[in-house]
C-alpha cells in the first residue's frame, strides 16, 4: 500500500478567514437594527450600494493583478469594508458617496498595497477619510433620529431611495430642513462660538449619556464587540485599551472644567468610538501584532481620537487616529517583540 507524504501537523485548522469575516458581519447586526430604528432604512441602501461597489472593484483589481477572483471575493473581507463604510456615511446620501468610498477603499487602500493581508492602512478608514476630505458638505448632512417627539421632519424609505439615486427630494421636503449636524459637530461648533456644554446639551439632539440615538447604537455595537470577543475573533487588548484611554482623557478634562469639556460617557457613546474600538482598530491586517503592542496601539488611538475631537479640525477623529497609528504599527511591532525562549536579550 502506498500512502501520501504530508508535512506535519496533520490536523484540521480550527478557523478560516471567511469564518472570521462572517462573524464580524453577524456582530454588526444588533447595531444595524438600532441604527435603522433611529435613522431609518437609509443605511441599508448604503450598505447595498457599498457592497456591490466593493465587490466589483475587488473583482476588477484581482483581474488586473492576475489573482484568482473567486476565493478572494468569497472571503468576505470586501463586504466587511463596505459595511463599515456604510456605517460611517450619513443615512441620507447620494448613491455615488458609498460607491466612491467603497471603491477607493478597495482599490487605493487594499489592492494597491498588495491585496488582503498587505495593506498598511485600514481600507474602510481610508475610504471614509477620502470621502470626508472630498465632500465635507455631503458627509456632514446627517438626518436626525427619526423619533416623533423630537420635532424634526421625517423622511420615508421611498424618498431616501429617490434621493440616493436622483439626488432630489420630494417637493414637501427640503434637504436643509431634514438634515442636522451630528452631536459631536454641534458641540465642536458651539464651543468655538462660546456656548457652554450645558447649553449645548439641552438641545433636542442630546440626551442623558450622549447624542440622542447614538448612545444606543454605540451600546449595541458594544454587544456585537462582546460577541466577537466571546468567539475569539478579536482579543481584548485593543478595545479595552482604546476605550480606557478615551475615558481617562475625557475624565481628566471633564473634571477640570465640565463646562468646556464633554463628559466621558459622551465621548464613549457618540461618534464612532465603540465601532472603532471593536470593529475598526481591531482589523488585524493594519493593527499591531503582539499583545503588548496592541495595548499601546489601542491606547494611542484613544488618545489621538480625544485630541483630534477636542483640538482638531474635524468633529470625530477616530478615522484619522486609526490611520496615523497604522503608520506606527511596524515601529510598535519592532519594540514589542517578546523575548524568545532561552535567548538572552
Amino acid at each position: 500500500m502506498n500512502f501520501p507524504i504530508n508535512s506535519s501537523p496533520h490536523v484540521l485548522p480550527i478557523t478560516s478567514v471567511p469564518i472570521i469575516m462572517r462573524h464580524v458581519l453577524y456582530a454588526l447586526i444588533p447595531s444595524t437594527i438600532v441604527y435603522v430604528w433611529y435613522f431609518g432604512f437609509g443605511i441599508f441602501i448604503n450598505m447595498l450600494i457599498a457592497s456591490i461597489a466593493a465587490l466589483i472593484s475587488e473583482a476588477i483589481m484581482l483581474r488586473i493583478r492576475n489573482r484568482p477572483i473567486k476565493p478572494s471575493l468569497a472571503d468576505g473581507s470586501a463586504i466587511v469594508t463596505a459595511i463599515l463604510i456604510a456605517f460611517s456615511i450619513p443615512p441620507l446620501a447620494p448613491w455615488w458617496l458609498p460607491v466612491l468610498g467603497a471603491s477607493s477603499a478597495i482599490v487605493l487602500a487594499k489592492h494597491l498595497y498588495g491585496g488582503i493581508g498587505a495593506n498598511i492602512f485600514n481600507p474602510a478608514m481610508v475610504g471614509y477619510a477620502i470621502l470626508l476630505l472630498s465632500f465635507p458638505v455631503q458627509m456632514t448632512h446627517w438626518i436626525p433620529p427619526q423619533i416623533e417627539n423630537l420635532g424634526f421632519q421625517n423622511i420615508d424609505l421611498w424618498s431616501t431611495v429617490l434621493y440616493s439615486v436622483t439626488g432630489s427630494l420630494p417637493s414637501n421636503l427640503n434637504l436643509d430642513a431634514i438634515t442636522q449636524a451630528t452631536p459631536l459637530d454641534i458641540v465642536k461648533g458651539g464651543l468655538k462660538n462660546g456656548i457652554s456644554i450645558n447649553e449645548l446639551r439641552s438641545g433636542p439632539l442630546f440626551s442623558q449619556l450622549g447624542g440622542y440615538g447614538w448612545e444606543w447604537i454605540n451600546i449595541f455595537t458594544a454587544f456585537g464587540g462582546v460577541y466577537l470577543l466571546y468567539k475569539g475573533i478579536i482579543r481584548w487588548h485593543i478595545p479595552v485599551s482604546l476605550l480606557t484611554s478615551i475615558t481617562i482623557f475625557a475624565a481628566l478634562f471633564y473634571l477640570y472644567d465640565p463646562n468646556q469639556n464633554l463628559s466621558p460617557s459622551f465621548h464613549l457613546l457618540s461618534g464612532a468610538t465603540v465601532l472603532g474600538a471593536f470593529f475598526i482598530a481591531t482589523d488585524p491586517v493594519s493593527a499591531a501584532a503582539t499583545n503588548q503592542g496592541r495595548l499601546i496601539y489601542g491606547a494611542s488611538i484613544g488618545a489621538l481620537t480625544y485630541a483630534i475631537r477636542t483640538w482638531g479640525g474635524y468633529p470625530d477623529g477616530l478615522a484619522f487616529a486609526v490611520l496615523l497609528m497604522n503608520l506606527m504599527v511596524p515601529l510598535i511591532d519592532r519594540f514589542t517583540t517578546p523575548k524568545i525562549y532561552g535567548q538572552q536579550q
Binding site: 478560516s16 488582503i116 498587505a118 493593527a287 517583540t337 517578546p338 525562549y341
Partner: peptide, 20 residues
C-alpha cells in the same frame, strides 16, 4: 485554500517559544 497572512496574530500567543 490558502489565504495570504492577514496578520491576525493568533500564531503569536500560541507559540511556546514566543516567536513571531
Amino acid at each position: 485554500e490558502i489565504w495570504p497572512c492577514i496578520r491576525c496574530g493568533e500564531c503569536i500567543p500560541v507559540c511556546p517559544v514566543r516567536l513571531l
